[in-house]
C-alpha cells in the first residue's frame, strides 16, 4: 500500500508536481501552529492524504512541537520574587 502511494507521488513529481510538495513544506509550521487559513488547511490535508513524504514531514513537525510543549520542564518561580516586586512597587511613588 505504502509503496504504491510513494510511486504515485514520484510520478506526480516528474509531472511537475514537485512544487506542490514545496508549497506543503511552507505550510507545515502554519498547520502545526494553528495559523493556516481554512483554504490552506483543506489544501494541506488533501495533499498529505496522498503523499507519504509530506504526511511524514507533518508527523515529524508535530512531534517536534510536542517535545517542547509537552516535555520541557518549567522552572519554579522563587517565592520571594512576587514579594520583592510588590515591595519595590510600593516604594515607588
Amino acid at each position: 500500500m505504502e509503496s504504491r502511494f510513494t510511486e504515485t507521488h514520484q510520478k506526480l513529481s516528474e509531472d511537475g508536481h514537485e512544487s506542490e510538495c514545496d508549497k506543503i513544506a511552507h505550510l507545515l509550521d502554519l498547520m502545526i501552529d494553528g495559523e493556516a487559513s481554512t483554504e490552506e488547511q483543506a489544501y494541506f490535508n488533501t495533499h498529505i492524504e496522498e503523499c507519504v513524504p509530506c504526511f511524514e514531514s507533518h508527523q515529524k513537525q508535530k512531534l517536534l512541537k510536542g517535545l517542547v510543549s509537552g516535555h520541557l520542564k518549567r522552572v519554579i518561580v522563587p517565592e520571594s520574587l512576587a514579594l520583592s516586586i510588590k515591595a519595590r512597587i510600593q516604594e515607588t511613588v
Binding site: 522552572v75 520574587l81 516586586i85 512597587i89 515607588t92
Partner: peptide
C-alpha cells in the same frame, strides 16, 4: 541563570509599573 532571571523579571515589573 536563575539570579539573572530574577533581576530581569523585577526590572520588567518596575518598568511596567512606570
Amino acid at each position: 541563570d536563575e539570579d539573572d532571571a530574577n533581576d530581569l523579571v523585577q526590572e520588567t515589573y518596575l518598568k511596567a509599573y512606570r
